[in-house]
Design a protein around this nucleic acid. Structure first.
Lengths: 329, 329
DNA sequence: GTGAAAGCGCTAACAA
DNA sequence: TTGTTAGCGCTTTCAC
């Protein structure tokens, strides 16, 4: 492992000159530059980023905390965040919270230890105050931590209304929604909006809850089973994509025709909604934009470029599939 | 940002003593320890990992390169790798190659720049020699780089045979397989084994290829369409999970009954195989074990614990779904 | 038991 | 234009 000193010695110049040549900062005469280039090539010198990090007091790494990397929404989110960070010269560290608050806390602590320059969090199991303790750059996706941490999210309220309108157009009379349970998250708004819109129009709405940190297929399957047994007469279901798919399979298993007997509407519109048959109608979150906005908001904090918007809410739209009767208006 | 110096001053001791106290290395009297603890608490001191990294010349970070984070197999793989690395005190940096060899190369270069202590790669688009240039710890998943880089993978050959046997038990006469195109990867063996086993038994096997770096659903959909038009009379398809699901939808769209008219067998057995209806029969790769073995093989290299096995091949098994007639033997 | 000092590899200010 | 030097914050000898 050749160091900058070795290069300097080999080229017969001082370390400062080598540094300036390498980083194209300050003057270096063509002649010395040539000597340095030769020495670099000969010794196969690569700057040690660890030393640079210490000097600059930054790592160039951003931590991304998600509840479960193996959930299609989050894997897509992390993918898009990585693409955006890469474009801006940052690296992505992934943090799977998997519902364990200790893990979330430990990853959050990386801020103080200078392992990451900032954090984008989409996880919800750690107490909000633990986040507020940190002064370092943080961006929250979908969870409201109050005025100190900028939040980026989708317009869940509009999404809930859109889903409700679809149910109305399908002529449904008694629908059910599956909610996650977690306070202060935007996702809650979609269920409130969904329920209100429907009840205002005389539709009965039942609600089932599910732990927001459990994402294995088994749980969705069980929940779907429970729901269909408990509510055999419902004619519409609104849930996250995976829950909706599980319910769809269960409904069909019980001999229901889709979408004649029951409307199914997912939220997120992850790729699985296209893979199932019929394709699942779903409210789409704009993951690409979600990633872009959260990354730029975080980097603006890190690089102190400009004022930070506290709350950025993105539009959602409907992806029409075959699980609702209504098509595009 | 309090430094160790501030703590030393506050506690009225030397920095060396503080370091020893913090790390529990060397002697520190109970009295001084107390003073130090108090100073640490008062100043809210947290050690700067950047400085430690420089001294130790390691970052505690492992890079994981995958073709596409948003593919269910890789998101599951990365998730499991992260869990294993976390247990061993390492952090995970994700690298989405997305089929761009420059990105793969740039991430690989992080080894020389000491940004990561090692790399686990599941990507295939960069030339093998670029990998061999590095002397640092690397583990390859599924791709054979020759004797210098340890390889961990599934027994694709056995998987191909298992799939072939299922086709035989289903009484198929003309099947098709979808292969990725990439040299030196273990996945190729499964198609050779599949083809040989079937042809030895008088079954005709057609092969279609697909770019191994393209994973968007659109491409699978198009490929499925092309295949069904080109080969309207096939009665069996063997492909990666997503390709098989796409073909299943297409087959049904053309009025075929499943599994009466056609058998579909996936490879990987990712979660989507359970979500679709009927569930897709698939050869399962043991992702948990794949992650565990590749992580331990990498850490053994990093920490120079013991001799490294060059080639570790893991068993696969069949996940029976409703897309084949044959059930468990 | 503890403090002083050297050094990890780099950058930037300063002097030449 | 270039070399020297002082840190960045930490760990670790090595005297005391």
């Amino acid at each position: 492992m050749a160091s900058i000193k070795d290069v300097a010695k080999e080229a017969g110049v001082g370390v400062g000159t080598v540094s300036r040549a390498i980083n194209n900062t300050g003057y270096v005469s063509p002649a010395t530059r040539k000597k340095i280039d030769k020495a670099v090539a000969k010794l196969k010198y690569t700057p040690n980023e660890l030393a640079r990090n210490l000097f600059r007091n930054r790592s160039g790494i951003v931590g991304v905390i998600v509840p479960d990397l193996d959930h299609p929404f989050f894997s897509s989110l992390v993918k898009n965040i990585e693409m955006q960070l890469y474009r801006q010269g940052y690296k992505t560290m992934v943090c799977n919270a998997v519902g364990v608050s200790d893990r979330e806390r430990e990853y959050l602590d990386m801020l103080e230890r200078n392992i990451v320059d900032g954090i984008i969090t989409g996880s919800h199991c750690l107490d909000g105050e633990e986040y507020l303790k940190h002064e370092k750059p943080i961006v929250s996706i979908d969870r409201d931590f109050g005025p100190k941490i900028p939040i980026v999210g989708s317009d869940h309220m509009m999404g809930g209304q859109m889903a409700a309108r679809l149910m109305l157009r399908d002529g449904r009379k008694h629908v059910l929604q599956i909610c996650g349970v977690s306070p202060h998250i935007l996702a809650n708004e979609r269920h409130l909006a969904f329920q209100k819109t429907l009840e205002d129009n005389g539709v009965r709405v039942s609600t089932e809850t599910m732990d927001w940190n459990v994402f294995d297929w088994e749980s969705f399957h069980k929940t779907a089973l429970k729901i269909m047994e408990k509510h055999p007469h419902i004619d519409g279901i609104f849930s996250g994509d995976l829950g909706a798919v599980a319910c769809m399979n269960m409904a069909r298993h019980r001999g229901m025709e889709i979408p004649e007997d029951i409307s199914l509407i997912g939220f997120d519109a992850t790729s699985v909604t296209q893979m199932v048959h019929p394709q699942l109608t779903a409210i789409r979150q704009n993951v690409e934009l979600l990633a872009e906005v959260s990354v730029s908001t975080l980097l603006d904090q890190i690089e102190q470029k400009r004022d930070i918007l506290h709350r950025q809410i993105l539009n959602v739209d409907v992806c029409y599939g075959g699980t609702t009767k209504a098509g595009p208006e």
